[in-house]
Design a binder for these strands. Structure first.
Length: 322
DNA sequence: AAGGATGCCAACCGCCCAAGA
DNA sequence: ATCTTGGGCGGTTGGCATCCT
């Protein structure tokens, strides 16, 4: 079951790849491209399955691959993206050019193991690049902790529960907003997170800066990626550049200017209605823990109430099933 | 120094989905 | 409409390296 016909071939070698096999695969793909993977083993003279060849190429031999430890910024990005999309490693990897889903998955699993053994380790792991302001420090840790609530496995729930935050999910302090008419609320944070200082404004700012970090990082990667692509195109086909296998690599969504209305981040309408609708659909698909509040259909209609206040937000969410 | 414990990561497995026959 | 095939993805495993006692 689940076996491909190409994987049922006799004499298919398994296990670690030898340097000779790597060489054959690299030579073949750089000469002919990858086209149909099931044909690659035969044509490249390899006793491997097409699937194995594909995996080896994607996870290890690709010339645009980046190896080595994740930078703190990359770790932060992974944490943010994981909070948004969960265990969709390929999706996360698509936002980190040169990194593979496998690498990110392995890395994440390592963090969880560390976390299981020593919860404080996660904290130190992910704050190495950030400022030393204990306020920020504390907030970031709480963000990381609260983001664990998204995870769906039993083990991960246990991790979260061990934090002793308080039992009831509450209104998320993150209020990422993309139009004057729509606001997004996560619903997964803890009582402690909410109770943290009671400074809604500073929480919103921290969230904003973290989110902006994420976007500037993906922008940077994207620019590098585009530059590499451009160089390859202008210098002819001798370049090592090959088009990414993950075609979904896209430039990050442009973030409009941010202003604050009370404790809610308000991103003034630089998105058209259609674009906004698309974004809402995508966000709800990827981020089921977020509520999107659309002013067009909300009870808060009127010029003098562009964004809900904290109490409004809680009232709005009170009817939402936890 | 030796052996067990732990961590890391490459590779595999099983399933899903889309495209084409 | 159904079946086959191949690509893609997330979960898991196994082996090597390192750490610890």
């Amino acid at each position: 079951m689940g076996q491909h016909t190409c994987c049922n071939q006799q004499k298919v070698k398994r296990g670690l790849w030898s340097p000779e096999e790597d060489e054959k695969l690299i030579t073949y793909i750089t000469t002919h491209g990858y086209g149909c993977w099931s044909e690659v083993p035969d044509k490249a003279g390899l006793q491997r399955s097409g699937k194995s060849c594909r995996l080896r190429w994607i996870n290890y031999l690709r010339p645009d691959i980046r190896r080595g430890r994740f930078s703190p910024d990359e770790e932060k990005l992974i944490i943010n993206l994981h909070a948004a999309v969960g265990n969709r490693w390929a999706h996360i990897a698509s936002r980190l050019p040169g990194r593979t889903d496998n690498e990110i998955k392995n890395s994440w699993n390592s963090w969880i193991k560390k976390k299981l053994k020593n919860p404080s380790q996660l904290h130190s792991t992910n704050t190495t690049s950030s400022n030393k302001n204990p306020h920020h420090h504390h907030h970031q840790q709480q963000q990381i902790q609260s983001r664990f609530t998204y995870n769906t496995t039993k083990q991960q729930h246990e991790i979260f529960n061990s934090q002793d935050f308080g039992a009831k999910p509450q209104v998320q302090q993150e209020s990422l907003c993309y139009s004057p008419n729509s606001f997004v609320f996560g619903t997964t944070c803890s009582l402690e997170t909410i109770a943290y200082g009671g400074h809604a404004t500073s929480r919103a700012i921290s969230t904003s800066s973290l989110f902006q970090d994420t976007l500037s990082l993906t922008s940077e990667f994207w620019q590098t990626h585009e530059q590499q692509k451009h160089e390859a195109q202008t210098s002819g086909m001798n370049s090592n550049y090959l088009p990414p296998l993950i075609e979904s690599i896209e430039p990050p969504m442009e973030i409009p200017s941010v202003c604050r209305t009370n404790n809610i981040l308000d991103v003034s309408g630089q998105m058209g209605r259609n674009q906004l609708n698309e974004w809402e659909v995508e966000t709800q698909q990827y981020c089921p823990s977020y509520l999107i509040w659309d002013q067009d259909t909300s009870p808060f209609i009127g010029d003098d109430l562009l964004a809900p206040t904290t109490s409004d937000t809680e009232e709005l969410l009170s009817s939402f099933p936890s």
